[in-house]
Every structure is written in structure tokens, then in C-alpha cells.
Design a protein around this nucleic acid. Structure first.
Lengths: 349, 349
DNA sequence: CTGAAAGCGCTAACAT
DNA sequence: ATGTTAGCGCTTTCAG
């Protein structure tokens, strides 16, 4: 291994050292077949000796494929999106593809900036959870693009992969009922959110199926944060002192609700049962552990990347993939059906 | 806005449409001064009409600067590293720089792959938390590189930014003592880890300063996971039934210890106090809330990016930046000095 | 099997 | 103030 002098070695340096032409070197490096063994050997040896690394910029420019994918998330520090990123990362690494990750911090202006950066970087495709109202800037360029998470709701014409909320909410409602909680109070998102409507619709249908008047359900809106969940729970507690059970539309709100219960001098799950929705890690460490519907975060990322890599040319615009959710039983729900089998929480990853 | 036909518009298309030459277009686009207002106007209008976006690949190739930074983390799904990534991301976005993020999943082979991908991508610099034993492949190419986190320990010749463990552990020990816990048991990392030695050294010094024989301290090794912390705590409890206080070298182990306490029929903080080290989000939702020493994760990422962007040419190799830790008081510590002021945990972000 | 040459989109001399 | 030209490092015809 020699020290590089001045500039990084190019394919020309390799060719020169191997005593062949640029093109022969390129062929050897690309693993082409139409080349003599001796030449290949020479080139490979030279490349190794020089510490040659292909310049991906040049390759990308020449081939029109940068070998990079873009991933725009609302917040990379959010554990849920971290899991999505991880899934995407792992899948991309398998295909020797790099991922440019951006965090819009839920700011539309920033997201737009990131999108523009993505375009400039000539990524081969983009995976986006958009906080913006329009995707015009995206499809204007014909960049292969997959929406993830709930943002897909707003853009029916774009392909997307997300969790199967309908199945997940159904799973939750079924479980709740199996534990004897037929009329859970609901802590949901803000009225502007489409996810909120969808959540409520599934709950509604479930109720109708089981001869329960949906209008009877207590509903509080919150903003998907811990604090929001806490306040929502306080309002719920004020409205109904005999409150037994809450189904929150995300784990953060569920966790906030849990602390509100505690602060009110009540216990979970003995006095009020709580069911979350997300499956974030923090729920496992809460006390009691938060029983929740886990979204397949990692698979969402992996699936989106796989789709982009496959070249989803055949996919019709607007195709949607819904990955199933999973129930994680921990300790935040009391079993009303069998009082002697009262569930005690246990921390379990 | 016109629909692009076939290929993305290049600067030539823009120039043609504006009725000027390539270079004039380039100048206008770059915002150079030596150009007539009318020409600039024409070019800008044409670029806009065509939906032109600069090809970063070409720019990078020409200029030798790709405008990208590499970030190699042990696990992007880990909330701590998520925060680091977020800090890096935000700082980079301010400078219109993109970040290629990789997750080595603590696999040296995978890390090496990522490093090689980084080299190929011709990133302008790299920020790395290495799990490998050697950085030869890195400095061979003279890629500006900054180590983050504890991995810096093993490579004294490379610049690094991390948290000030010495200050942080000192902060913890001081706090512990102020609460009446003079002889905390320690749950630390595995013997191979340099971070473990450093942690123990600071504790040792603190004890000597306060006339405590360090040999008296109970120590258990674990693997930085929740399970590891749980087992370590079980061993601790078996060794000493009157155990009062534990200082864990990270939050995950602290959280594991907390559940072990609970499983043993004991209470935290009434029976045993627990102090963590990290400041992960989950600690805020635990019950009681985990009192901990918070590492400045976001700043670490931001600082590393800033350093790389500044062009740290002047920095001597091996320069280290240690960012101060911060105490987060929640409810996992009992105040032995003032029994009437026994601390009750409260969930607080 | 190998070499010569064109060109991806852009910038930076160098001319005019 | 503007146009011309020469590459950046690579892949890919096209000849030989």
C-alpha cells in the first residue's frame, strides 16, 4: 500500500501502473468477462497497491444512477422514525446503496429545502414522510418516490408503504373487548389529521359490529405528544370519574395518559387500563409496561427501499402497501373478564 | 413550468433557452457579479421555466467537493445515536450540506463496507463512531474525519468530539453524595471497554478525595443492555441485601436494574436509588422517572459537523472536544440526608 | 481481447 | 460582459 501523493488515484493511475489502457482497467474493475486473466490480475493488483476507490460521483454522472436514495423524515431523533431509518439503511446496505437522510423537523419549508437537495444530489429515488401540502415539486421531476406513514393519506396518487392502521386498530379493539373493555375512551389526533378520521372510522365500525353505540365513546383530541396525552387524560378523568379504559392513538399520548392517571392518585391498570399504538421502545420501560399495537417500523423502511431498488416501474401510481401491526402485551391493561387473573405488568422488550 | 421531455434539463438547455452561452448561464446561476442584469434575468427565468436543478454530481466532480458528509453510527435506531444524527443533520442543513448516514449495527465488517462506500461517494468528511479496531483504511485516504463517542478512546491520533465523561461521572458522584449516597454500587461495561476504565477511574478519584476506600464499592460488569443491567442488579442484590444505591454507566442498564429491583419485591427509590448515565427519552417515562446524567448528544453531532465544515485544517491531529454533561433530576433517587424530604418521582421530559 | 475517443454536466481559465 | 475550451473520472461504443 503506497501513500497517495497529492490526489486520489484515478482509473488512469491504475491503468498506467498495470500497463494497460483506461478501458481495460475499467473492464477489469467492473468484472467484465471479455478480458484476459493476466490483464485482470495486473489491474486488480495495481488498484490494490494504489488504494484505488472508484469515484461514485463520476460513475453516477456517467451512468445516470447515483447509487443513492433519499429519505426525508419528520424527525430522525424520534425513535419510531429511527427504526424506519434503520430498516431502510439495512436493506439499502445489502444492495450497496447509500441513503441520504434528512430530518424536516416537521417544517414544510425545511422539507422543501431537503427535497431540492435530493433532486440536486440526483438520488435514484426518494422515500418521504411529507409534512407539506403538495408534492408538486417532486413529481415534476419524475423522481421515483414512495411515501411512508400517514402522509400517504393526502397524496392518493403516489405509491406508499405504511402500517395497516385498520388492521391495527381492529386488533386493539378486539383485544380490548377480549379483556372486557367494550367502551374505551379514545385519545386521538387533532381534527385536521386524516389519521384521526381513519382511526375513528375503524373504531366506529367495530362498535357497530358489536352492538355498541359509537356515540357513547368518550373522545379527546391531542397533539400526539406526551404532554398532549397527559392533558387529554386529565380532561377525560374530569368528564368521567368511573373511567376504566383508554385507547390512545399513539404511544407518546398513552404514556402521557399514564402519568396523568398516576398524578390523579389512580393506578394503572387497576383503576384505568391503557392501550397505546406505535410500539416505541420507551413503552417497554414504563411502569407498568405499556401494552400497545406495534407498527412495523423497520419493515416499512426496508420495504420502501426494496421497492425503489426493484424499480417499481410496473407499479401503478397510487399503489399502497399496508404492513400488518402486532399486539405487544405488557402490563397496562386489566383483565375485567377474569378478576382473579388480574394482569400485573412486567417489563419486557 | 414545462414538462421535461426525456432528460432532466442541463445548464445547456437553460443557456439555449436564455439565448446565452453555457458560461454566462453558469455565472448567472452561481450569482456572480460580472454579468449584465438582463442576461441574469433571462437565465434565471429560463432555469425556472425549465425546472432546472443543478446536478450535484457534476458539480462535485468538477469542484472536488461533493457537498456531502458521512456519518457512521453503531445503530441509527438507538435513540442516543438518533439524537446525534439529528444534531448533525440540523447543523449540516444550515450549510446546505447533505449527510449520508450509515448504521454499522456494531458489526466491524459492515462498518468497513460503509467506510468504503463513503470513500467512493467522495464525501467531504466523515463522522464516525467506530466499532472496529483500526482506522487504517480511513487515514490512508486523508479523508477529514472526526470520531464521536467513546470510540475516540482507541484512536488518540484522530480528532474527536464527545461528552465529558469525567465531568459527567463527577457530577453524578457529587450528586449522589449530596443525597447521602457515599458508596454507590456500580454497574459498568465489560472489562474490554476503555469507557469502563475511565468511568471507574473517576469514581476512584472521587472516593479518594472524600476519604472513602474505593475497594469497598460493589462493582458488576454488564453489556450496556437492559437485560445486562437487570442481571447485574440481581447479582448485586444477591451479594448485598442492604443495598441502597446503584450508579449505572448507561441508562439502559439503569432501567434494567430498576426492573430487577421491582422484581425482587423492592421499591425504587424507597429501597434502592438508581442513577443512570445517558439521558435517553425512555428514562423520562420509566416509573419512577430515571434520574440521570445526560450526555449532550445533539451537540455532539452538531459540533462534529461544524468542525468538519469549518475545515479543521489548523486543528492538530488528536484534538479532542469534550462537551459537558447535565444532571436530569427525576424520581429514582432517595434523599437520605433529609428523610422528610423523600423524593417522589414525577414524569418530566 | 484491447485501445482510442466521445461525452455525462459542470466550472474555471482563457480569450474576446 | 460574454463566449470558447479544457477537463473532472468514468463508462461505453467503435475500431482494430
Amino acid at each position: 500500500m503506497e501513500t497517495v501523493s497529492g490526489h486520489r488515484p484515478t482509473i488512469i493511475d491504475v491503468a498506467k501502473r498495470a500497463g494497460v489502457s483506461k478501458s481495460t482497467a475499467a473492464r477489469a474493475l467492473a468484472g467484465a468477462s471479455n478480458i484476459s486473466d493476466s490483464a485482470r490480475e495486473q489491474v486488480l493488483r495495481a488498484a490494490d497497491a494504489l488504494g484505488y476507490t472508484r469515484n461514485a460521483l463520476a460513475v453516477g454522472m456517467r451512468s445516470g444512477r447515483s447509487g443513492m436514495l433519499g429519505l426525508v423524515l419528520p424527525d430522525i431523533a424520534n425513535p419510531f422514525w429511527g427504526e424506519v431509518a434503520r430498516g431502510a439503511q439495512d436493506r439499502a446496505a445489502d444492495a450497496d446503496t447509500s441513503i441520504l437522510i434528512f430530518s424536516s423537523n416537521r417544517c414544510a419549508r425545511k422539507e422543501l429545502m431537503h427535497l431540492s437537495t435530493l433532486m440536486r444530489a440526483r438520488v435514484d429515488g426518494a422515500i418521504i414522510n411529507s409534512v407539506a401540502d403538495s408534492l408538486d415539486d417532486l413529481d415534476r421531476f419524475g423522481l421515483p418516490c414512495i411515501l411512508i406513514g400517514s402522509s400517504a393519506e393526502r397524496f392518493p396518487d403516489t405509491c406508499s408503504v405504511g402500517s395497516d392502521i385498520v388492521q391495527g386498530v381492529g386488533l386493539g379493539m378486539d383485544y380490548l373487548r377480549s379483556m372486557g373493555h367494550e367502551r374505551p375512551a379514545l385519545i386521538v389526533g387533532q381534527p385536521t389529521r386524516l389519521a384521526r378520521a381513519r382511526f375513528l372510522r375503524v373504531v366506529h365500525e367495530h362498535c357497530v359490529e358489536h352492538d355498541i353505540d359509537p356515540a357513547v365513546l368518550l373522545i379527546e383530541n391531542a397533539d400526539y405528544t406526551v404532554e398532549g396525552g397527559r392533558f387529554a387524560m386529565q380532561r377525560l378523568l374530569a368528564r368521567n370519574h368511573g373511567l376504566l379504559c383508554v385507547f390512545a392513538a399513539n404511544d407518546l399520548m398513552a404514556l402521557g395518559a399514564m402519568s396523568a392517571v398516576r398524578e390523579a392518585g389512580l393506578r394503572c391498570p387497576e383503576d384505568v387500563s391503557i392501550l397505546g399504538f406505535d410500539g416505541i421502545q420507551a413503552g417497554a420501560f414504563a411502569w407498568p409496561g405499556l401494552t400497545t399495537i406495534e407498527k412495523p417500523a423497520r419493515q416499512i423502511g426496508a420495504q420502501a427501499v426494496a421497492w425503489l431498488l426493484d424499480g417499481n416501474a410496473d407499479a401503478k401510481p397510487g399503489t399502497r402497501v399496508h404492513l400488518p401491526c402486532r399486539l405487544i402485551e405488557r402490563g397496562s391493561l386489566a383483565n375485567l373478564c377474569d378478576a382473579s387473573a388480574r394482569r400485573v405488568g412486567s417489563v419486557k422488550g
